[in-house]
Design a binder for these strands. Structure first.
Length: 522
RNA sequence: GGUGCUUUGGCCGAGUGGUUAGGCACAGGUCUGCAAAACCUGCUACAGCAGUUCGAUCCUGCUAGGCACCUCCA
């Protein structure tokens, strides 16, 4: 199996990935709080950890990928004053909280499906694990790292910090935290401002509440990930991912809870993706400067000059390293759109070349996609090959470099740069046949199948979702282009151009090549 | 105030102690009825200052700007 390196936030270094159980990977990623539409900022971890999931599987690991849905416990503003985000939305829209959860969970899934993000192995909800969370609160109390105050239970950070290091992940000391923590207005039930809630007492009018040994209430936000991670992945597991903004306090608190309750930090590799920015500023719900995914797909937002397809978004994200900030702009998205289309066109040409050369070319990604059914086989049919059948040194090199890049902390921009080298070779072969051997073509087909479609998860949006309508359209196109070819043969340029213009208006672009006319559907 | 990150060519965005990242845009060329695509060629940058070094965009220090976290946030 190839060596994989990942940047571990705990050490701030690239480390060789060694799983706890050989051949198996347990991976947990913080999912969305479902009180509004997913935005571009959610697409980033969605795609990033999807690529990680796909890459690990492609490298031959059996992966259990857990990504939660937060549907309770996530408060706004300060934990003492804030209102539960879901409950607030429900109050404003006069809905049952679970109606809010249902709607936005569905919409989140839909956006992820369009981005070709594979469903995780398990998608647990906080509200489905209240009993487990209560049990853990009890254990933390027993261990002496929490205290009860006015019906709520808080984690005793100072006490914990005497034995362990609170701040180990975010690289700060409790002194730093103390200095930076805003003083509260004195009404707090907490002993210290940096203590965080494990269980919150619910006011009588509160809808989302459950009975507990400390009275009716609801679990603290940080608790759910600790509890569900342990439940589905065990006492210790391999990878925990999430946005960099979750590093402190969310993930720091998870570590503290884990130590307090099960005597281990619980996670071996912490992986954090960076933020999407707009005009250099973080895109976020709290800042109100976000663009939702439905808006992006439809183009209906004041800062958008056009609509962008899901694959354009995916490619845009892939073109930057996951640990760098990624700045949104129409110009950058348009550049991504063109680059993406260029790769897809080459993929189609490669299929032609392969069938001409008698190379089997399943080339996935062109067939109809339906993530509603969990069709992992779409990207799991192969494990990463150790050798490639290419004859030309150039193609061998591309093949090697692509895998090297992916295994070097998931460097997708570098991998893509070598894919573009492959695109150039395919285009050259199309111009002048015979530059590639059969082995070369086989290697390229594999590269597109396994990497472009499989690991990077791109798919061809231009190809029809429906085999039958595709057949009909292609039959019609043959007919129309045949007529146009006749017009051209008679040098009837007005007619041939008019046909081309009409088709263009329908979103069909016609290109004349030496071998006759070609067309692509936008 | 504390902690950490960052500053790359017209734009996006990798990376490295000495050699062309890549994409998009732009200019010229080939091809073509025209167009598009493709291919070829050109555009060679690393905030500023000082230091280490045979040599720094890449190491060190300082200066300036930007960002993130410290409160909910992917």
């Amino acid at each position: 199996m190839r060596d994989l390196y990942l940047t571990n936030t705990l050490t701030r270094k690239k480390e060789l990935f060694i799983p706890i159980n050989p051949g198996h990977v347990g991976m947990y990623v913080c999912g969305p709080t479902v009180y509004g539409d997913a935005h571009l900022g959610h697409a980033r971890p969605g795609v990033t950890y999807d690529v990680m999931f796909r890459l690990l599987r492609h490298l031959g690991y059996k992966v259990r990928y857990v990504r939660n849905i937060t549907d309770v416990g996530h408060l706004e503003h300060d934990a003492d004053e804030g209102e539960d985000k879901i409950a607030k939305k429900a109050r404003l829209e006069q809905l049952e909280p679970m109606e809010v959860v249902q709607e936005y969970t569905f919409r989140y899934h839909d956006a992820m499906r369009r981005l070709n993000v594979a469903p995780p192995s398990i998608e647990p909800r906080a509200s489905g694990h209240i009993i487990e969370q209560i049990e853990v609160v009890k254990k933390i109390l027993e261990a002496g790292f929490a205290y009860i105050s006015n019906g709520s239970v808080y984690f005793d950070v100072e006490k914990y910090n005497k034995e362990f290091h609170y701040g180990i992940l975010s690289g700060r000391s409790l002194d730093d935290t103390m200095e930076g923590t805003r003083s509260l207005d004195g009404q707090s039930d907490k002993h210290a401002p940096y203590d965080f809630a494990l269980w919150k007492k619910a006011e009588p009018q509160h809808i989302m509440k459950w009975p507990s040994p400390w009275g009716d209430g609801f679990p603290g936000w940080h608790l759910e990930c600790s509890v569900m991670g342990e439940k589905y992945l065990g006492n210790e597991f391999d990878i925990h991912g999430g946005g960099m903004d979750l590093m402190f306090p969310h993930h720091e608190c998870e570590i503290a809870q884990n130590e307090a309750w099960r005597g281990t930090q619980g996670v071996h590799y912490w992986v954090h993706n960076n933020m999407v920015t707009i005009n250099g500023q973080k895109m976020g719900k709290s800042l109100g400067n976000f663009i939702t995914l439905p808006e992006l797909f439809s183009g209906e937002h004041k800062v958008l000059t056009q609509a962008y397809t899901p694959m354009t978004i995916r490619f845009f994200i892939l073109q930057a390293h996951y640990r760098s900030t990624l700045d949104f702009s129409n110009e950058a998205l348009q550049a991504a759109e063109k680059g993406y289309k260029r790769i897809m066109q080459a993929a189609r040409d490669l299929r032609e070349i392969a069938s001409g050369a008698g190379v089997a070319s399943p080339i996935r990604g062109t067939e109809g996609h339906n993530a509603c059914q969990m069709d992992y086989n779409e990207f799991l049919s192969d494990t990463a090959p150790e050798s490639c059948p290419a004859d030309s040194e150039g193609i061998k090199d591309i093949f090697t470099k692509v895998y090297d890049a992916l295994c070097d902390d998931m460097n997708t921009p570098i991998a893509l740069s070598y894919i573009f080298d492959a695109v150039k070779l395919i285009n050259t072969e199309k111009e002048k046949k015979g530059t590639l051997t059969k082995g070369d073509i086989e290697t390229l087909v594999r590269l597109f199948d396994d990497v472009v479609y499989g690991v990077l998860g791109l798919r061809d949006e231009a190809s029809s979702d429906n085999g039958k309508s595709e057949k009909t359209i292609s039959g019609l196109m043959d007919m129309v282009l045949d007529e146009r070819a006749k017009a051209k043969a008679e040098k009837d340029w007005p007619l041939s151009d008019s046909i081309r213009d009409h088709l263009k208006a329908l979103g069909i672009e016609v290109k004349d090549t030496k071998d006759g006319a070609e067309w692509t559907l936008d």
